[in-house]
Computed example of a mutant assay.
Amino acid sequence: MTSVTSLFAPVDTDLCILVENLQQLIGARHPILSAAAEHLFGAGGKRLRPAIVLLVSRGTMLDREITPRHRRLAEITEMIHTASLVHDDVVDESAIRRSVPTVNSLFGNRIAVLAGDFLFAQSSWYLANLDNLEVVKLLSEVIRDFAEGEIRQGLNCFDTSLSIEAYLEKSYYKTASLIANSSKAAGLLSGVSADLAKDLYAYGRHFGLAFQIRDDILDFTASTEVLGKPAGSDLAGGNLTAPVLYAMEEKPDLAVLIEREFSQAGDLDRAMELVQESNGIERSRELAIHHARLAVQYLKQLKPSESSQALMDLTDYVVSRLY
């Protein structure tokens, strides 16, 4: 199977520059916060979000070199994403991410929250210095969306009345918003038309939804080693995702287990079994494929290039990991 990093070939050099720049952007004025941030940046993430920004940048600047503002946007995108992970881990009380200890488990919740705030503040500062009001608005909306998504997830814990529509809306806030808005922002920095900017946003939106649904499926089908965190952790924490919501339509007993918050011995194991026995995972696969196909449709305005092909191939990669 093609690896996701091989799909980044058109921007490999750009990603190497990005990793070097991120270390410098964090700064050394706050040693503990810097140590926490450097721990995250060195944790082996795939750099998917900045890679998409760089691919869109190169795919819309075919006869020109991408600008320092394109590179800075990619760096800002990774900083915002990383900040959100730090806060998520505090809220979820996670000890492991990407198979390494989380910032909160190493430094404590107080430092982790401050580290996340620090990264959000740093990203906002560099964002303002792009001197492009439309791009500032787009990425500022992302930061607001992250908070909205986290609040909604917290309010909907163990809520068996949650609809697929509400789940997708929360998934947009927590995952797709950053990919959608940063893709559009990259196009705007290239001076694309309003129509193409709108299509780049739609590509990012549907790709982000497909990606999140894929991750939610893997929580039931992949091992703890592959996930880099305990399998079934979302369900255990009351975060009801597409496979569970679909499974509850077939398995009423699943809702009973969830509503009592797995308070009895064996509840969580039985809940996992019920999801596996249902069509919930298959229906979730179909939902992910639907959004992946929609994403590709919105790339038709891009001229053919290695970068535009990589953006298309990324949607295939997301779907390919479902089988």
Rank of each mutant, 00 (worst) to 15 (best):
M312W: 15
D145S: 04
K198S: 12
D117K: 05
T13M: 15
I213A: 02
I96K: 00
S177F: 04
K46G: 05
A176L: 01
S308T: 00
A74W: 08
D92V: 01
L189E: 05
L22R: 04
E277L: 15
A37M: 04
E65H: 14
L127S: 00
R260Q: 07
L196P: 09
F120D: 04
D219T: 05
D131Y: 11
V275E: 02
S140R: 11
S163C: 01
H206V: 02
L200M: 06
V192L: 01
L274Q: 04
I80A: 05
D215G: 04
A242N: 03
S140Q: 08
Q276F: 14
A147Q: 11
I52Q: 07
R72S: 11
L18D: 02
I17R: 14
S320D: 08
K300P: 11
E259F: 09
K303G: 12
R49S: 13
L139S: 07
V113D: 04
H290I: 07
M1H: 09
E250N: 09
T82Q: 03
E93P: 09
A231P: 02
S263P: 10
G45D: 11
R110V: 02
P31Y: 08
G232D: 08
L168G: 04
D145R: 05
A180G: 04
T82Y: 04
H87T: 05
S99P: 13
V135Q: 03
S263L: 12
R285Q: 06
V53F: 10
G204V: 06
E169G: 14
N279G: 15
I52S: 05
E261G: 08
D269N: 14
L240Q: 02
K198R: 15
I32G: 03
S84G: 11
D195F: 14
Y201R: 12
V86C: 10
E169N: 15
